[in-house]
Design a protein around this nucleic acid. Structure first.
Lengths: 163, 163
DNA sequence: TTGTTTGCAAATACTTTGCATATGC
DNA sequence: GCATATGCAAAGTATTTGCAAACAA
C-alpha cells in the first residue's frame, strides 16, 4: 500500500513533519534518512558521526535533538535508555511491563499466556535466552486523564507500530 | 513449591550469594529486602533514600553497586536504561528485539506470530497502547563463542558488569 | 516577517573508578 | 588472616538548557 511506503520515504517524512507542525530542515531530513538506512539501533553519537560525512557543520546537539523529535512524532523510536536513570525490578515472578511514555512510570501486569511465549527454534538456537517478555508502551490511564484522551497532532499519527 | 518461596526469602538470598561467591553483608540484605518490598521499579536513588531510613550511614555508592550486583546474580533485574546511552530505531516495520546483555548489541528478528500479540482487554482499556512487542534478552552467538558457553557462577567477583 | 531551528557553550545529572578502612568468612 | 565490601571523593559520560544567529514558511 502506498501509505505503507510513504512511511519510509522522504515525502512521507515531510508530510509527517508538516502534520506535526515541524519545519522541514536539511538537518532533519539527513538525520531521518541516516536512521532509516541502518538497522544498527544507533546512539546519537553514531548518527552524528555518520551524518557529518555529508554535512560537516552539523552539531551533535542538533542530531540528538532531532532524534528525540523524530521519536516524538512517531518517525522513530527509542529502544534503549530513555535518558532516565537506571531502574531495577526485584520481582522475579513472571510478569510483564507497560511503560508510560509520558510520565515514564513502569507498571506491572500479569497475563498468563505471556509467561510462556514460544520463541522460534531459530532464535533459541542462536542465542542463550535469559529473559523473554512482552513489553508494552503507551500512555497510562493517569496521563490520559490528565492531558485529555489524545493529544491530536492530526488524528492519524499513523500508528507507529502496527501491533 | 518451596524453591519458589525461597526465591524471595532472605534465606534464599543468602544461599544465592554464597553460590555466587558473594559475602552476605547487612547492606546487601537491606538493599535486597527493600527492592523486594516494592513494585515501583525504583532507581538507585530511590532505594538509597528508603534504605537510609534504617541504615543512615550507608552510602549511595554501596546501594548502587549492590543493585548492580543483585542483577548480576539474578536476584533482580534492570528494567530501564542499562546505563548506556540512548539508542534509536528507525525501523517502523514490525520486528522484535533481542539484546545481548554482554556486548549490548540489539539485534532484530522477525517472527510473524509476534506481530499480533493479543493484549488482554483489561490492559487495552486502561492504557492507550503505542507499542506492543516481544523483547528477548540473553547472550548472543558472538559472545557465546568468545567466552565459552557458560560463565561459571563463582569466579564472578563483585561487579558482574559486562563490558 | 515571524516563529522555529541550529550551533555553541555551559550546566546538570548519572555512573564509574580508585583507594583506604572495615568486615564477613 | 585474607580477600571482599564499604564509604568517600574525584573523574568520566551522557544529556539538557539557554541564547543569539540563521532559516523555513
Amino acid at each position: 500500500m502506498k501509505e505503507r511506503q510513504d512511511k519510509r520515504s522522504i515525502v512521507g517524512f515531510r508530510d509527517r513533519c508538516r502534520r506535526a507542525g515541524l519545519k522541514v530542515t536539511p538537518q532533519r531530513e539527513l538525520v531521518y534518512r541516516t536512521l532509516m538506512e541502518t538497522d544498527a539501533h544507533p546512539s546519537a553519537e553514531w548518527v552524528y558521526g555518520r551524518v557529518r560525512e555529508s554535512m560537516p557543520n552539523i552539531s551533535f546537539d542538533t542530531v540528538n535533538r532531532t532524534l528525540l523529535t523524530l521519536s516524538g512524532i512517531g518517525a522513530a523510536f527509542i529502544v534503549e535508555g530513555s535518558g532516565e536513570s537506571r531502574r531495577f525490578d526485584g520481582n522475579l515472578a513472571s510478569h510483564q511491563h507497560f511503560k508510560c511514555v509520558r510520565c515514564k512510570r513502569i507498571l506491572d501486569f500479569h497475563y498468563e499466556p505471556f509467561d510462556n511465549i514460544a520463541v522460534p527454534e531459530e532464535v533459541r538456537k542462536r542465542f542463550e535466552l535469559l529473559r523473554t517478555t512482552v513489553y508494552l508502551e503507551g500512555i497510562c490511564d493517569r496521563c490520559r486523564a490528565a492531558k485529555g484522551p489524545s493529544e491530536k497532532t492530526s488524528s492519524n499519527t499513523t500508528n507507529i507500530n502496527p501491533q
